[in-house]
Nucleic acid binder design. Structure first.
Lengths: 234, 234
DNA sequence: CGTGGTGTTGAGTGCGGTCAATTGCTGTGG
DNA sequence: CCACAGCAATTGACCGCACTCAACACCACG
């Protein structure tokens, strides 16, 4: 890590956020309450931020006010790499829960030694591209396929963090999940209920336990439209 | 431009391509016939390529063989920036028409002067991210909205090239367009016919003339589902 | 002239969206 | 401690958009 921690003293580009219940001074220490924005779309930011704890979502808003969730960000992720190339943020980033972030100072000296962060930033952007392509691909499938794929992917992320791959708590609301997967919240509910009825998983509010990953994987990438041709009743 | 033109002598990672009708030696000079691949997915490539003439599409293929078109690339675009960070390509790139490309040599000297291409590559990747987010956002709208948005966007690209913004020839087949916009080819046909019947444009095979950009813009980002609420009968 | 690829158009249907009612959880005040 | 309001999530009813299947038109080939 060549980045250096700053005391997180952004002047006040966050003033637009609702006057949340957070204690004065909490935000300056990098604490965000649920619903508070880390960045707003179009903002010019100083530093990328490392997420210490909590969850954030990044989203864009279309001309009709509909929000399109681009991604969820967990502890260890870095958001706001636009700071490193002097671009405005193209999406808003908001806390889904109480969240702690850390501003990362980026060395700006022109005479950069060989591979300090440069490759890191590039590979970070490259991974972002891969993530978006993956999301784009998901969008083409059926709603069941999208939800199944999301749950499996989320399980893998959890596993990478040393948590259970099959037993986890979704940190985001149905609405956010729906906006991420491109469907209605009711459809999320229905699909989860369907999976539960088939015995593929158990659902208790946001607590998910995967019971049959094989079946989920089976339909994870299934195309929309009618199911297996030849299987439908006459 | 700090890139240098190479005589395009890729050994033969392209051998997998179908034994196209191209003359021997044509490909070595950077000429691709319709259907020939510039890159295959998973390939490790040496240099990014500048497109001189023609059109390419980049795509990924899901586990069911369905291809998902990520983008179309026109003269002036650069594809294959993975070469600069030593990554494998994540998507295939194939010519939609006779195409001429140029391999760009990338200086690898560690002591890079200040801003030779570094920012260029990064901003290139950043623009790719923006493009993907835009595409993702489009996917949420109705089919009419997606086609309208595509035509308007394509017109703008044409205008940037000094061509007519309202009168152009689409270089890709209906199938590719459908795969790009996430719909069936029949739907593309139907939407274009509908636009034509409404007098918004004229269609002659791939030759499009936009006659009412305002109307197209109106529905460009319209959400799917029923039309204007309050307008439906009773 | 036959043939295959590509685009258009029609018929039918199912997935998933909207609308709406109900349930359950949470926090707040009496 | 309970009543109530407010919000999130679930479930049901309905229906329209877009997909599949199918037939046909149109070129560009040999």
């Amino acid at each position: 890590m060549t980045a250096q921690v700053l005391p997180f003293e952004q002047p006040d580009p966050l003033g637009r956020a609702r006057p949340g219940p957070s204690q004065a001074g909490a935000r300056e220490r990098g604490i965000l309450q649920r619903g508070e924005h880390l960045f707003h779309a179009g903002e010019t930011i100083q530093y990328p931020h490392l997420i210490i704890a909590g969850v954030l979502k990044s989203y864009v808003t279309d001309e009709h006010g509909q929000e399109c969730v681009i991604g969820f960000h967990m502890p260890g992720d870095v958001v706001g790499f636009e700071a490193l190339i002097g671009q405005q943020t193209f999406c808003g980033v908001v806390a889904l829960d109480t969240t702690k972030v850390l501003a990362l100072q980026h060395r700006k000296e022109p005479a950069e030694p060989e591979v300090p962060h440069g490759p890191n930033l590039m590979t970070e952007m490259y991974r972002e591209i891969l993530r978006l392509v993956h999301l784009l691909q998901m969008d083409r499938g059926s709603t069941e396929g999208r939800v199944a794929r999301f749950l499996l992917d989320y399980g893998e992320v959890q596993a990478e963090r040393g948590c259970s791959q099959r037993n986890f708590v979704l940190p985001m609301a149905r609405y956010d999940l729906a906006r991420y997967l491109g469907m209605a919240t009711e459809t999320i509910s229905r699909v989860l209920s369907r999976f539960r009825d088939r015995g593929w998983l158990t659902v208790d509010h946001n607590h998910i336990t995967i019971r049959d990953a094989a079946e989920l994987l089976q339909i994870a990438g299934s195309p929309p439209g009618r199911g297996q041709p030849g299987t439908h009743p006459q």
